[in-house]
Design a protein around this nucleic acid. Sequence first.
RNA 1: GCAGGGGUACCCGAGUGGUCAAAGGGGCUGGGUUUAGGUCCCAGUGCGUAGUGCUUCGCAGGUUCGAAUCCUGCCCCCUGCACCA
Length: 951
Amino acid sequence: MNYDPQEIEARWQRNWALSGSFEVEIDSTKPKFYCLEMFPYPSGHMHMGHVRNYSIGDAMARFQRLMGKNVLYPMGYDSFGMPAENAAKKDGGHPHEVTHSNISSIRSDQERMGYSYDWRRFLATSDVEYYRWNQEMFLIMNERGLVERRLAPVNWCTDCDTVLANEQVKNNRCWRCGLEVVQRDMAQWFLRMTEYSDELLDELDHISFPENVKAMQRNWIGRSHGAHINFQISGSDSVIGAFTTRPDTIFGVTFVTLSPEHPLCEEICEGTEWEDGWRELRDECAKMSEFERINLLKEKKGVFLGRMAVNPMNGEEVPIYAGNFVVATYGTGAVMGVPGHDQRDFDFAKAYGLEIRRVLIQREGEDPSSPLKDAFEGYGPMVNSSKDGFDGLSGDVAKSSVIEALESSGSGYGKVEYRLKDWLLSRQRFWGTPIPMVHCDSCGIVPVPRDDLPVRLPLDVVFSEEQSGNPLASHPEFTEVACPSCGGNAKRETDTMDTFFDSSWYFMRFCDAGNDSLPYDRKKVDYWMDGGVDLYIGGIEHAVMHLLYARFFTKFTRDSGLNSVGEPFGRLVCQGMLNAPAPYCEKCNSEYHVDNFGADCPTCDSPLSSRSAKMSKSLGNTVSPEEMVSKYGADTVRLFILFGANPEAGMDWSDSALEANNRQIYSIIDAVQQALSVDGGPSEMDEWLMAKLRKNQTSWTRAMSNVSLREGVMISHFEMLTDWAWYIRRGGCDPITARKLLQVWIPMLAPATPHLAEEFWHNFGADGMLAEHILAAAPDAPDSDSVMAREEYIKELINSGRSLKSLAERHSEGEITRAVIQTAPEWKAEMAREAIRLNLEGFDFKSHGQSHVQSLEVFQEESKRGEVMQTWMALTTGSKKKRGRIHSWSDGEKSLISSGLDETAVIKENSEFISSSLGVGSIEVYRVGHGEDVGGKARISFPLEPGIAFL
RNA sequence: GCAGGGGUACCCGAGUGGUCAAAGGGGCUGGGUUUAGGUCCCAGUGCGUAGUGCUUCGCAGGUUCGAAUCCUGCCCCCUGCACCA
């Protein structure tokens, strides 16, 4: 076959589209499989990371179709967001046009790869057909009390000109542009995601996300159980509320610390000598950059505020400090200081000369007054409690006793605190879903009635670099509106939604993408989403953001009666990084742009080596999918990607490995063509090939089901080929067997290399397209094991013969021309059969083995005793390092022995093959005793391991 | 510091009590096919040895008849979070 991937691939892509092979609807006769990749932001062309993501998804979608599943596999675009808006600002035009031209180019790249999407379900979140349902969802949330507008300190990114959600701030920097964020007080729209904190956390135990993703989400939600404790300010009506997870250390409190931003600070020290100190600390903290904070915070810094607080448990007065280490936004922004049992407080107390009190001991009997070198942060019995009834209590009992006491005195209560915050939804940008709210002078904030939806983004907006702020705000046709409630003059909300809102439910919209009267039909979503998306593939970077928002959203829609399922994703696979070589300086431990290959380090002038690094524009080590596809075809690129590493593992790009995979494709083509043209007759090898086929199909199905694609591809594209080559080498040439093989092998090639497989299927003359074919499960065949073992026997014989021959060559004068093979004598074979039989009966070889051998007839022959014993031990107990053969033989080998395999006959039948494989002119074979004991090899002969002498 | 994942031969990478000197691929070496590259096929790739032996799966111990695999301690790498009370 003249392999022209460009022609073949285009042709089959056309045919699949024409016949609608991948278009699916609800079908109650088949199990469903929903395969989904995190949809892309359309930034132009597809890059290799996308190729990896979608090649994994497509392989799984195609595999599941072969398994008879009804597979939903859609594609769409997360097309709202800043890059398009920025591009419009820079180059003119409207983000809408920029976006749509990008979508068409990435889509054509995807089509060129042959991904089997149901393109009818295409969606782009920036199209009003999609985002109007965002607005509807928002209004439903509002009706359910999940929307809140409130004034709050928010994260502001100056570069992006907008606020950011907590999740979008990494190390105090904007996740998108990397600029440091600043705090601002603004009135913003929030979604009350914290309503679902517990469910979001607890359900993690029941979903199959990778452990690291679960850990990140658990961390993020950060639930801690503890107590809220009120410390009365001495001589004031005000109270400092502090959250602690360690109420059992309440008697160790020797100070209370407020965050410098805490509103009570000012009240406490205003007009006193302490005020200046506090103001200084507060200002310092407020303007601290991230870098400074990391350095400064190593040193705990605090100022006394001049007043005392009362410990509600014992009435003791302790000083109140403001401290730079107290986070304003966590808990209450106030901490009780227990230096004896908290290292941070310990350091603080040391620095400011505060009392360190021991109120827990590590173990019973320890001296309660022994001083502490460091804080003891573990649990232990309470001591030195300045109130009766607590000493001796420890752990949870101690905690709940303290909480009980606090509750009965009204000075505190048990409390669960979360790190998770409500979702800050509003963005001060144009290219997003308009928030459907109206500000009316007389009615206040009024939601847009659902019948008035959608609130459309105007298309007649001119973007320019000079402008700052949201262009919507200066677009009167958009902002001027009649109040839906009173009809008076009102202004539209100009904030738009965070784009994570769009991606929080698109997977449900895909189930019913064309619906123009509802976000989606409940029946359809309940069918496709049952048990969640069956396989969701994407990058780890969304472990917290997207995956948490989507989980929240699904629970909200469930509680609103829109769908049944509460967890959106059944199985999540995060694909690993795609790396490529980059110049690397070991001395500076840094990577440089590929332009530096062969040069010296730009920093230290030492020679650069090479190291694998994440493909990135900045290093220039990217590989263009278009280029690779035009050079080798999509199938080669897909094969390389899937075979290079399992989905979760990182993988290195390698041009030579890509070429090797291309060669592999040629080999497969040759093999398939050969299989289509063999014209011999049946042989013993047919049964073997069929046995291997069954075995391969079974392990392939298992591997693929488990998304172990590398293993799957290895079987379909490598082992199957090796088997075919062996079949031919061993003289197999039966056209009927070959067709039986192809009937199964060709479909197995489809997940990774679908075009090639489809072409084979066509040449094979099968009915219909492979894309719509269902592969029957491999039939059971009980004799497979021994058929394979028999062939394995010959392989092993050749293998050990080869290594022996090289030894023999060193010991023999002349050239080696022949081999004499002595198979094990009947008594050894008989002994092996008996050992296998006894083992099945549960015979205790350790205690009765010795006496059993001695009772055997062969043992009576004195000259043989040593060999008999040796054979018996090798068969049963083995040596220190090697187990007895009855344990190490495979089922197939055991059945060969038990059925009395005639080794001599097998070798004779295959003598020509064996002698040519061993590179000897001839071989002679007989059972030990039936000929001369050449080279004294009789003793070495063992069942399945004949003695071989080279002459 | 906390959490999660890792460390296997020249490289990538499977393997989670015995069938393991350890799959598969890449690279490298040798042979064959090819009267041209290329492709393709076969073999070798820890050391030893006319065969059952020795050493090796981050380091050091331990459990076991037997450990890459289980346990303990340590070192190193990656990822995320981080004065979170």
